Computed example of a mutant assay.
Amino acid sequence: MVVNAPDPSAKAQLRRDLLAARRALSPDSLRTAARALSRSALGLPELAGAHTVAAYVSVGSEPGTRELLDGLRTAGKRVLLPVLLPDNDLDWAEYEGPGSLAEAAHPGKMRLLEPAGPRLGPEAVTGADAVLLPGLAVDRRGMRLGRGGGSYDRVLARLERAGAHPALVVLLYDEEVVARVPEEPHDHPVQAVATPSGVVRFTSPAGGS
């Protein structure tokens, strides 16, 4: 199947609209959504059956992940968090609790919270049973719209090269599950989306028929 390249200006406008909607959320709304999102995600079979989960620390008005990270650790999961490299690729380190995070400044980017422990290398993600992906939207086919930095496109390409097939789950707000997002040839569909109100699934649970 040939996939036509999306109009870059339309894609950029969609990103701007989605980011503006996030910025309009109140602090109370963000906290309430983060608690509900954690409950939704922790109920996923893909996470319940995982030994190692690659996740991320939310920033700004992104759907909050801090409660989810601690919930995964409480459930006995090994949690890997990304460390942004100068070329926008991602290294990984283990999450050892809130005290293991340190603020990191990257030129031209907002400050991030990153794990302070030993770096495990970019290939560490290939050992994850589930990968939680940030995004701005996912459509009804399971295609994800990212923020455009390319870091997670590299992660997904690395998984493909390694022959690794972890469950791919995007964390979003309810209204960010949309009819269609612009698709490019390198894009990968995800298995599920967790939102504050529940889960949208695109394939059967990991290990299912």
Rank of each mutant, 00 (worst) to 15 (best):
G148D: 14
A41R: 09
G146D: 01
V131Y: 05
E175T: 15
T74W: 04
H106F: 15
A157H: 12
R161T: 07
F202D: 06
D70E: 15
P185V: 15
A206E: 13
E94Y: 10
T74I: 12
V57Y: 03
R78P: 10
G49S: 12
Q13M: 11
E94K: 02
L47S: 02
Q191H: 15
P98D: 13
K109H: 13
M110L: 15
G150P: 11
E67R: 12
R22N: 02
D174T: 00
G99P: 05
A34M: 05
D17K: 07
V83K: 09
M110N: 05
V170M: 04
V125I: 15
V178W: 00
P189F: 05
S100H: 08
S204N: 14
A5M: 11
G60I: 03
D91H: 08
A75Y: 02
S209Q: 06
H106K: 13
L81N: 03
P185T: 14
E184V: 14
P118L: 11
A192F: 00
P185N: 13
D129Y: 04
V53N: 05
D7C: 08
V3T: 13
A5S: 08
L156R: 07
L14A: 13
A5H: 10
G117C: 10
L171C: 10
G60E: 13
V83F: 01
R15D: 04
E96F: 04
R15H: 04
A157G: 15
R66K: 05
A33E: 04
E94T: 11
P182Y: 00
E62D: 02
T203L: 06
L37V: 05
R22Q: 05
E114Y: 00
H188L: 13
D153G: 12
M110Q: 07
L25Y: 06
E176V: 08
L168P: 09
A20I: 10
P118C: 03
D129R: 01
D129L: 02
A36V: 05
P6S: 02
L18K: 01
V177W: 01
L30R: 15
E183M: 09
G146V: 09
G148R: 01
S29R: 15
L120R: 08
V131Q: 08
G135K: 12
L90I: 09
G117N: 02
L101W: 06
S209N: 11
G208K: 06
E176H: 01
S29H: 10
M110G: 13
R141P: 00
S197W: 12
H106D: 11
R141H: 07
D70Q: 09
V3Q: 00
R78K: 13
Y56D: 08
A128K: 07
V199E: 09
L136F: 07
R16L: 13
E114D: 07
P166G: 08
R23K: 14
G207V: 07
R161P: 04
P86E: 09
S58D: 03
A54N: 03
T52K: 00
A48S: 03
G146S: 09
L171I: 14
G127T: 08
G208A: 15
S61K: 05
G207I: 11
L171M: 12
L171R: 03
A50F: 14
E184A: 14
A33V: 09
L136V: 15
V190Q: 03
S58Q: 02
L101I: 14
K109T: 00
G64T: 02
K77V: 08
G127Y: 04
A104N: 09
A116N: 10
G207D: 12
L68F: 08
L81E: 06
G97P: 10
L69R: 03
L14C: 07
P8R: 05
L80Y: 03
R147I: 09
V131D: 05
